[in-house]
Simulated scan of single mutants.
Amino acid sequence: MAEAQLCGLQDEFTCSECLGTLTDPVTIPCGHSFCLKCLTDCWDQSQECSCPQCRHTFTTRPELNRNTLLNEVIKKLKKTTLSSPPAPPSQNYACPGDVECDFCTGKKFRAVKSCLTCMASYCQIHLQPHYEGDALKHHKLVDPDRNLKEKLCEKHQKSLEIFCKTDDLCICMMCVVTGHKNHEMVELETEREDKEKQLGATLSDIKRGLEEREKTLKETRRTMEEMKVRGELSKRGEPNQK
């Protein structure tokens, strides 16, 4: 029973840096765990010490000590895995056509959400800080989007949040104060909903027009058939039948 539970928790013991099972696991003050080597390499290559998963920054570099309890649990997990039938290939890796996680290193996981505030895409593992941290939980998450750069203002590199009706243009908050003062503006989402309503009304008008044309065409064909029949009857000298 315990072994089965460990197998089910295998993803919980995955290092978000190498995406493999934790080796010599270390847990840092923010609560996240990594392979000792992965975290050491990450910090050695950076000018600041921050958690690769939640981005929490430490003023001084924390001392890294192996999490003995977690290491023992992982040993049991590996032993159970070796004695169990081979698991099917992971379904989380990004395939051609998928949106990749921007924070995975090496072989990338499939993104499950894109953040319009961070302008980045996240796999399930790297998305967790958006649900757990107060600083990120108000960010706007959408389905994975590979065209996030198109949603950035070319001038200020900020997300496009406002629609300027005066200039018929999507703009960022910096544009509002620098070049669109006193213009008529609405939130981008509001404008999108209005455009969808207008498009729906236009499509309904087109559909009614097509139905009217189809009706007129059928009546024209019926009239032409009647005229053809009458013409043939006249040639035969037979009285026309109404």
Rank of each mutant, 00 (worst) to 15 (best):
T190S: 11
M185Q: 12
V177N: 07
H183M: 07
M174E: 15
C153K: 02
E189L: 04
D168L: 06
C170F: 05
E191H: 13
R192E: 12
H156R: 13
E191P: 03
T166K: 04
F163E: 02
H156C: 07
D168Y: 05
Q157K: 14
E189P: 05
V176K: 06
E193N: 11
H180Q: 08
C175G: 06
C153L: 11
K151C: 07
L160N: 07
N182D: 04
E184D: 06
C164H: 14
T190D: 14
N182S: 06
E184F: 00
V186L: 03
R192K: 13
I171D: 02
M185N: 03
K158L: 10
M185V: 09
M185I: 10
I171P: 02
E184V: 01
H156Y: 15
L169P: 06
G179T: 15
E189C: 05
L160Q: 04
Q157P: 04
K151F: 11
H183A: 03
I171G: 00
M174R: 14
L160Y: 08
C164N: 13
L160R: 02
E191V: 01
K151N: 08
E193W: 00
C175W: 09
C170E: 10
E161H: 13
G179K: 10
T178L: 14
N182R: 06
L160F: 12
C172M: 10
C153H: 06
M173S: 13
H180D: 11
E184Q: 11
Q157H: 15
K158V: 02
E189M: 06
C153V: 12
M174W: 14
E191S: 10
V186C: 08
E161A: 13
K151G: 02
C153R: 03
L152E: 08
E187Q: 09
K181G: 02
V186H: 01
K155E: 11
C175M: 15
C170D: 08
K165H: 05
K181C: 04
L169I: 13
M185T: 09
E187M: 08
D168C: 09
Q157L: 04
I171Q: 00
Q157Y: 13
K181D: 05
I162P: 00
C153M: 07
K165P: 01
C170I: 01
K151V: 05
V176W: 01
C164L: 07
K158D: 11
D168T: 08
K155N: 05
R192Q: 14
L188Y: 07
I171K: 00
K151L: 13
H156L: 11
D167V: 02
T178Q: 14
E154N: 05
H156Q: 10
E191N: 13
C175F: 10
M173H: 13
V177G: 03
C175Q: 12
K165F: 01
C172F: 11
E193G: 04
M174N: 13
G179N: 12
V176T: 12
E161I: 07
K155S: 07
L169M: 12
Q157G: 00
E187N: 10
C175L: 14
E191T: 01
T190I: 03
I162H: 04
E193C: 04
K165Q: 12
E189H: 06
M174G: 02
S159L: 09
S159R: 12
C172D: 04
M185P: 01
L188D: 02
